[in-house]
Amino acid sequence: MRLLFFLLLAASLSAQTLEVTGEVEKPLKLTLADLELLPHQTVQATEHGDEKAEFTGVPLYQILKAAGVPFGEQMRGPVMSLYIVVSANDGYQAVYALPELDPLCTDDPVILADQRNGKALDAATGPLRMVLAKEKRHARWVRQVVKIDVRRAAK
């Protein structure tokens, strides 16, 4: 019985996808296995209750770059009106401006974490969680991320 439970859990986690939509050249549906192939970064962060933890995951700009969102020297002019909305499994959403994600604009990485202290995220927070290591409030640390939508600010 226990083995069946773990097999079903593993199947549901491997079926988990991250959808990248909106103002992108190439809409994506990424599995956890797909995300494992992208470069990862580890950051130190303080969670609620002042507990320090180490989070590992894909820098968000890497995922957006794979979808064709311009970064670096291409981030100018009309691109500056793009922003993203990150959505959780339960409908919770948070907004991020593109310059917040670009390593040429900031030294504060924003990652889509899949690990905490070297272990996979628990079911309450994962399998994917936004981590902004230097933010004091964690309102944009979206848990159970399922979608990233790139949008353009209205004129």
Rank of each mutant, 00 (worst) to 15 (best):
V95T: 14
V24P: 08
A133F: 05
D107N: 15
L37R: 15
S81V: 02
L32D: 07
L64S: 05
A33F: 04
Q41V: 09
V20Q: 06
V131K: 14
Y83M: 01
L38T: 04
L82P: 09
E100H: 02
G57K: 13
H48P: 12
V20N: 07
Q62F: 00
L104C: 00
A45D: 14
E54Y: 01
V95N: 09
V58Y: 03
V95R: 15
T21P: 10
P78K: 12
A94Q: 07
L60Q: 08
A66P: 06
V85R: 14
P103Y: 02
V69F: 06
A120G: 04
L104Q: 13
A113D: 01
L28D: 06
L30N: 14
E135W: 08
P99C: 02
A45Q: 13
E19A: 13
G72F: 04
P78Q: 05
T31M: 09
A94L: 05
L98D: 02
P70Q: 09
T21G: 05
L98I: 08
K134T: 09
T31F: 10
Q41A: 12
K134F: 03
L37Q: 15
L132H: 10
M80P: 13
V131Q: 12
K134I: 00
V58F: 01
V24E: 06
M130I: 15
Q41F: 11
L38F: 12
K134W: 03
D90H: 11
V95H: 08
L132E: 11
G68Q: 09
T42L: 10
K119P: 08
G126I: 02
P70I: 09
A33N: 11
Q93E: 13
V43D: 03
G126M: 10
N117Y: 03
V110R: 12
A123N: 08
K26C: 00
P70Y: 10
D122C: 04
L38D: 07
P127T: 00
E100K: 07
R116C: 07
R116W: 01
Q62V: 09
K119D: 07
L121R: 13
T21Q: 11
T42R: 13
D122W: 03
T56F: 00
V86C: 08
E25D: 13
E23G: 01
E19Q: 15
A45Y: 09
